[in-house]
Design a protein around this nucleic acid. Structure first.
Lengths: 207, 207
DNA sequence: TAACTTAATGGACGATCGTCCATTAAGTAT
DNA sequence: ATACTTAATGGACGATCGTCCATTAAGTTA
């Protein structure tokens, strides 16, 4: 078995992901509506029939691209979170920092996210995949807030954790929208300080 | 000059707005991508050439629909705000309540908003019109927060008002996204209480 | 009523769109 | 080397797409 990276004539898995990459690139450039099969295969440098061969159709390719984009985001978050250990406050801050970092929050990502959002309500295959910042992330945040909320005996910990989770995700969502519509005026520092004001208001002893 | 509402054979203004209404209805049902001229005129019950006659083309019709939708939202907010007088705290709460009311926040509206959002970054005519919850609203909120912030001498009033404005709009944005993706699980009461926690954290003497 | 302006119609048009398949090529097993 | 399986190609296909215009109708002015 040779390494064969250079001159592989056949590469089904590679071509599959090339198509997905080309699709995401096209969406970030011209939006979903103008992302046609012709444009995708031109970007990918592959032949027309490949979409049907590997995905069965354009619809499934879009769904696979949505899934890949979602994973890309989540793994980006996860990498940051892994580094900070298990203290819940640090996990929360890692999520916030990562979500607002240039690595994850940039023009390409905001355009793709909102393009899929716009299509999610009417295209099942996409909706399943682009839930509110992914259920995985939501669960991670809620678990962290639940631990923190236990230190506030004056409040119902479930309600507090729920509000913190919901609020934080909504706030971050809004930051992405703002970035999308106004990438030049956007300030990561201001965004972060506002998020900190929010969670600091809920958990004054921790943030 | 007769009233002629019943049997008007020609009605350019009426047909124009019928086309816009049909466009928004189509977008809320099948998204922007599948909103075709054929579908629009079928919904409107008008003839094919009318799109070109009244708007010059589909692109301009979409832009006009985006504008109409934006106005629809803003005037809805404004009506609520007019009722509560000039006290800044009451203006803010009126905006929040209106934004989360069923009149403004519903499946149709969230679908249309996000459909336009997804197209905004790549279609100039739409982007101009669907800024972050409209500059008019942003200015109104900021003015109210500026007055309130003057009562907090420990903070820079400009920074405080800016953070409150930015944060509130982002939070409401996020609520809309959550509603879009999960209309059944969404609770207006929870959403409102979270918003109140946020502004209450910034302005403890007022909210 | 006649002449004129504006609105509305709906089909024809070329230009895409996405799908699919007959054909060729590459890789594997016998 | 041969037979076989899987990958890749690219053009043909019917089905739409949005635009536009020749034609008809409605309303207005003279």
């Amino acid at each position: 078995m040779t390494a064969q990276v250079r001159t592989k004539k056949r590469d089904p898995k590679g071509n599959r992901s090339t198509l997905i990459r080309a699709t995401l690139e096209s969406i970030s450039e011209v939006g979903i509506t103008d992302t046609t099969v012709s444009r995708i295969i031109e970007k990918a440098g592959l032949s027309r029939g490949m979409v049907h061969l590997h995905f069965g159709g354009k619809t499934q390719l879009l769904a696979a691209a949505a899934q890949a984009f979602s994973d890309e985001y989540y793994f980006g978050i996860d990498r940051h979170v892994q580094k900070v250990g298990h203290a819940p406050e640090r996990i929360i801050m890692a999520v916030v920092t990562a979500d607002l970092s240039e690595e994850l929050l940039n023009e390409r990502a905001t355009r793709i996210l909102h393009a899929f959002r716009g299509a999610a309500s009417t295209h099942t295959g996409i909706a399943e995949v682009s839930g509110t910042r992914d259920d995985r992330l939501r669960d991670m945040i809620r678990a962290a807030f639940s631990k923190i909320a236990a230190d506030y005996p004056d409040e119902d910990p479930d309600v507090l954790a729920r509000d913190a989770t919901f609020g934080l995700l909504a706030l971050l969502e809004g930051m992405w929208s703002d970035y999308l519509l106004n990438p030049n005026a956007f300030s990561r520092e201001v965004a972060k300080s506002i998020v900190c004001r929010f969670i600091g208001g809920l958990f004054p002893d921790h943030f």
